[in-house]
Design a protein around this nucleic acid. Structure first.
Lengths: 337, 337
DNA sequence: CTGTATGATGTTACGCATAACATTACTATT
DNA sequence: AATAGTAATGTTATGCGTAACATCATACAG
């Protein structure tokens, strides 16, 4: 099988046509600059040999790879999948390839991934974490490639950030829950990244401002439906009188909701539940889940647009772009009075 | 911001240390071959300049990129995220970078993605579709890189395939549903790829063998919870007497289950529901979802292991490796008698 | 003290597409 | 017929890390 037949180069094609590789290269880039006779002949040989363009030499000499590095903490998390879709809706038509890497919420891994991507000479980076080690900042500066951070609009941006205000969003939802009569609401957090910390802060501020006592439960595991169910059981043990659950994402919230159903706890009468992000499932489940709808796809799209603008020579116009979020009350909170 | 400060090369480092770049290169690869005095000095300069290794020249001259191309039809589909995790659990420790590309179930896009990946000189490819155009087969042959297909164990492999028998799995679940008294089961399919077609065939065979009439509903949209709910409404219109729903994946099944809950249809008494893949949510939802548990992560792991073995000079031992699936009856089918 | 082994560093060549410049052949203009 | 102009193709140089080979210095054996 694995014959050591070397893959054909431009030179091979050129030899067969009887021209120099420059002519073939031109045909591939700007066919109109090549005579009609040659066009036909070159195309025929290209097909014959099955020539596959090799981008590497050009990347080496021009340092332009037409590739963008994309860093996400996790692939299993819907949020990032949707953000990526937003990014690619822009990069794809522009002819940029995305190189996706994920680092399982580990800063050391993020560092390594960034180094690897820069090793392939990506033209730009999109990061989805808003806190970075000095070495990461250093690498990015040294590499001289434009960087955009997404998901958070608060922390100081390395160069430019596109996101929304996680703290304000969590604060707003907590206030809504309180207004709906869920005053003993606990917060469920999964992996603690910067965004989660901001959300916890928003929750705590809203509670304290109302003279209520915040209480949050955290797991180091990745968030999942099962994990949400587990957290609910733990919460009920430690706060048997809780009447609300606000989760750092929809998965945990829905897991908690399932657990309520299993235990025969009425939602929202006994316990109100709210999630974060507004995924499809929040709208499909019975009762519909209260959630903070975040602009995931839009963030990706805008981030990519700004990155491409900078690759085309633009400068950073606004260092932080804040997008709006929206509260969806669903059916998992008590009705407004 | 975007200073045109060029990123330091090995030569820059070497100049500052006062050696040739070869010595620095050696230090990076096999530090023990460099004298202790130089080691310290080189490391210091590396830090000072923030040198980031550039893999491109080496890829150009050795044609070895230490990168593997990963093609998946969709990122939002959990199945592939889990498969990718399996793949990376192997490639990562082995020092291979994965380059992920997705093609939204479009064969033309798949072709383009493969060409792009080969343009970056990936050392191998993992594809997750089992049907491919001639041009794809041609490209792969010409490029001379090893390829492994995952997810399906039936179609003839380009070189090597790791998967399970989609048709047999669907057949087995359909039989289980019939045995549990769901004889008027309809099948919900989303995007029609090879695997889905195989599943539909398994379902149809099981039905026909029992003298029952198969009926399947298909949508061209991506599968989602909402879509599952929609399909259930459509199915009830066209087959008001249906007593079972078997879905091509868990998302559709759970969407259908939600819709039953919304309409007050008892599951499993009135309608039995089964999904496919056995994601976390299947086990968390109330009632627990009947589903075909497929070896998603394992497929990825094994595929990666075989690919790496071939990159290290091994040959294809078995052209098709079939992994087992498992039926999970959950609580969404009527109990066994 | 000569010769050989070994360790440390240097030199050379390579990979291949393309930008920039150079050349050639032809056409059009006066 | 001479000149300018243009279309088509060719030539040269470039990017940078590393394998393979070459060289040099030092140490140690005989």
């Amino acid at each position: 099988m694995a014959e050591k037949r070397k893959r054909p180069t431009l030179q091979d094609v050129a030899d067969r046509v009887g021209v120099t590789k420059m002519t073939v290269s031109r045909y591939l880039k700007k066919p109109e600059q090549v005579s009609a006779t040659l066009q036909a002949k070159i195309q025929q040989v290209l097909d014959e040999l099955g020539y596959i363009p090799n981008r590497v030499p050009d990347i080496l000499s021009s340092s332009k790879s037409q590739a963008i590095g994309l860093l996400v903490p996790s692939l299993t998390n819907q949020v990032f999948a949707e953000m990526i879709r937003g990014i690619e809706s822009v990069t794809d038509p522009a002819g940029y390839q995305t190189m996706l890497a994920h680092y399982s919420y580990s800063q050391a891994a993020e560092e390594a991934r960034i180094a690897t991507l820069l090793g392939y000479n990506v033209d730009g980076l999109i990061l989805s974490e808003s806190f970075h080690t000095d070495r990461v900042r250093r690498m990015i500066r040294t590499a001289g490639v434009p960087v955009i951070e997404v998901m958070d609009s608060v922390s100081p941006a390395i160069e430019q950030a596109i996101g929304f205000d996680n703290e304000a969003a969590a604060l707003a939802m907590t206030e809504l829950m309180i207004a709906r009569g869920h005053r003993k609401t606990v917060y469920f957090a999964a992996r603690m990244d910067t965004r989660t910390r901001l959300k916890v802060r928003g929750y705590e501020r809203a509670m304290t401002e109302q003279g209520l006592e915040p209480f949050s439960l955290q797991t180091e595991e990745a968030s999942s439906f099962t994990r949400g169910a587990l957290l609910l059981r733990q919460a009920l043990e430690r706060r048997p009188d809780l009447d609300g659950v606000f989760c750092t994402n929809d998965d945990l919230a829905i897991g908690a909701l399932f657990e309520c159903q299993r235990q025969g706890i009425a939602v929202p009468d006994q316990i109100g539940i709210a999630g974060f992000h507004g995924h499809d499932i929040a709208n499909a489940i019975v009762p519909r889940l209260a959630t903070v709808v975040t602009p995931r796809e839009e963030m990706g799209r805008i981030a990519a647009e700004h990155l491409l603008a900078r690759l085309q020579g633009g400068t950073v116009s606004q260092s932080v772009i804040e997008l709006p979020f929206r509260l969806e009350a669903g059916e998992s909170l008590r009705p407004a009075e």
